[in-house]
Structures are given as C-alpha cells and as structure tokens.
Design a protein around this nucleic acid. Sequence first.
DNA 1: GTCTATATTAGGATAGAC
DNA 2: GTCTATCCTAATATAGAC
Lengths: 223, 223
Amino acid sequence: MAGAPKPAKIKTRDRILQASLALFNSEGEAQVSTVDIAAVLGISPGNLYYHFKGKEAIIESMFDEFETELRQVLSAPIEKPLSLEDNWIFIYIIFEEINDFRFFYEGMSSILERCPSLRPRVARLLALKKATTLAILNSLEKQRLVSFIADEKDRLADRIAAHLTFWLQYRAITEKEQTDRARIHDGVYSTVLQIAPYVVAGRADYLEGAAAYFARQGAGKRR
Amino acid sequence: MAGAPKPAKIKTRDRILQASLALFNSEGEAQVSTVDIAAVLGISPGNLYYHFKGKEAIIESMFDEFETELRQVLSAPIEKPLSLEDNWIFIYIIFEEINDFRFFYEGMSSILERCPSLRPRVARLLALKKATTLAILNSLEKQRLVSFIADEKDRLADRIAAHLTFWLQYRAITEKEQTDRARIHDGVYSTVLQIAPYVVAGRADYLEGAAAYFARQGAGKRR
DNA sequence: GTCTATATTAGGATAGAC
DNA sequence: GTCTATCCTAATATAGAC
C-alpha cells in the first residue's frame, strides 16, 4: 500500500555478489570458478568481468560488507554492557554472521595468500573479537558474577575469540549431518559453558540455566 | 665405523613426499602445483607422475603417514595414565605433529572436497583426539586433582580437541611474526590454562606452576 | 550493460624413447 | 626410473559488436 517504489530490479553487481556467496558457501570457494558464477546467474562471463576484475575482486568486495557488519555487531557491547541473557543472544548473532560468511573462514589461508590486503584487516577483526569478549568478561567481573586470577581473563578472551572463529568448522567435521542451525546453537552453548567454571556462586545453577535456555531455544525456530 | 650400509640414496618417491610437505607448509597447498614440486627436486613432471597419479595421491599418501603417527601418539595416554607434567609434554608432542602437517589443517575443507576418502578418517582422528583428552581428564579426576559437574567434562574435552586442531591457525593470524616454536609453546600453555579452573585445590599454585614451567621451556630450545 | 567470440595460460596428464 | 615432448582441459581474461 505505502508508496513502495517499483519492484526495483537488483543490480547485476549485487546479484553477482549474492550468487557468489551462496556458491562459495555451498561448494567451497576453491571449487567455484567465475564461469560457474556467471552460469547460475544466466549471464555471460564477459559480463561478470565487466563488474569485477575477477574472483579476488568479488571476495574483497564481499569482505568489505562482512567487515562492516561484524564491526558494527562487535562494537555494541563495548559501548554498553549487556545482561547475562543478552550476552547469550549476542553470541548467537556473532555465530550467525560468521556462518553466513563461512566459505571465507574455511578457505582463509588460501584466500589471504591471494588477497594479501585482507590479512591485516582479518587480524584486526580477530583482535576486535577478543576485545569485545574482554569487555563482556570485564562487565561480568564488575557485577561480581565471575572472577579470575592471574592472566586467566585475558587467556579466556583469546580462547573464546578462537572458539568463535573456528568452532563451526570443527563441528562441520565431527558432526557431518547437523544443520547450520544446530551447529550455531551448539556453538553458542559451548561458548557459554566455557565461562561457567569462572562463575563465582551458583555454578551449578548457571549450568542448569544455560542447559534449560538452550534446550528451549533448540526446540524453537530462531531465524 | 659400525657396519653402516652404503649412503642409501633416498628413494625418489620419498623425496617427492618430503619436498611436497615442505612446499605445502611454506607456500600453502593450493599455491603449489605438481610442476613446482618436480622443479624443486630437479626431476621431470613425467617422472613425478610415474610415482603418483597427481597431487591428491601425494596428499593421501602423506595423510597415511600422519594418521599412523598421530594415532600412535594419541593412544599412549589411553593405555596408561600420565603424571601432570607428562601430560604437558604430551600436549607438546601433539602440537608438534600438527604443526608438521599444518598445510593440511589450513586447507582442510578444500582438501576434503577433493579427497573425500579422507573425510571419515579425519573425523575419526578428531574423535580420537577427544577420546584421549577425555581419558586424561578422567585420570586427573580420579586423582582428585580436578572436578567437574554436569556435562562439563565432555564439553571441555570437545573444546580442547578443537583447540588442538585450530589454535595454531588462530595464532598464525593474530601474531604474524611468531616462530613455529613460539606458536606451539603458546598453544600448549593455552591448553594447560584451560584446565586450570577445574583444579580442585590450589588453582593459584597450578597457574603459577604452569607459568613457571612454560617460562622455563620458552627460554629453552626444545626441538 | 550485456553478449559472443576468442585469446592466453597454467596445470594436469600421457606416450614413448632412453 | 627417468626424460622429452606433447596433449587436453579448465579457468582467467579481453576485444569488439549490439
């Protein structure tokens, strides 16, 4: 009803990005050629090359978008602390972002070899993951919900950053039949459990609460 | 002096495996062609194809060896429990094995795409990593050194298995300048710290002991 | 912006002589 | 076992018409 603008045909450039992402994620970036991408879109390879210099250019353009989104997400809890449950949802969102861009994580070293300009940007993104995790841990610590000694806090933040980065890949190998949804869910639960042993009082309650929360969500149909 | 057999020229087949591993690890498997391998060995591509049907055959053959070695290593603590310090050395050995085969871990999803027969074997290897970790945790638990509630133990084993698998990659991105040695060292320390919060009594002592142990080793020249 | 046609290469792979 | 020579293919990339 509202003055919606005409159907607004999606620009070819964007269709290329969108189709490439889908293909990369399902087939693996290494297994997809520029011809494949053009084929699924029903356009000519020549046309594709009019929009992008090549596969690397496509990847770099995708990364731009991913980086922007993830930076935005990761900055939220640094600005204002979240409640415990909000933290859990927050981890969900991060895993979902990463899952949408999983081809990149799976082929990372080969991609970074071919797109060296991305290397420092990836490194900064990982650093931001750690910083955000640290901010959350600091907030929990200030609320006296958890406590750390020595360099435990810093090390935990590092491990969680790595966990966020690689857990989906780990699970993809160990549980081949899982759906994306199940893998993400499991990843979040697994992150939450990692914090449990540092919970000051009522660690059992925390574990129980988490188990209940994730059983509930697991049955649901988030996304 | 001793009746050493003549210089025993290494068989070409083995030289190919050895050179390929070195190239794969330094350049990335995807960036290395059969021609490259032949070139560094000073043999003809035709000769290489006499020994191996192609790059995939080389990788599969390398994996055979890696699998055998790692299985042997991982089976040790299942058969007989280790002391605390022995466990640390044990983790060192695992990281070293993985580091020697890191091209495989880095390009895993692409390699498994091309060598589907390896997928179940990799999955079983990861399962064995987890089983071994579980065996160690069980042993520590029986000695009353650590304690777990709910499914913490199982989840920790899973996380450590993932940690062993991906930590070197994580560090390779976040700390570009590190040497292999430093990365491995850091990986072991980081694994050890992950167990700390479950230590029943004297967690502070445990942490301090670990820090001292790894400071000492870090200065040393293991390997 | 899009297509058709074509060029260029690099990599994988084989045949046959030595 | 090893080399030379060669082939085949798939993927990248460009030129020029529409």
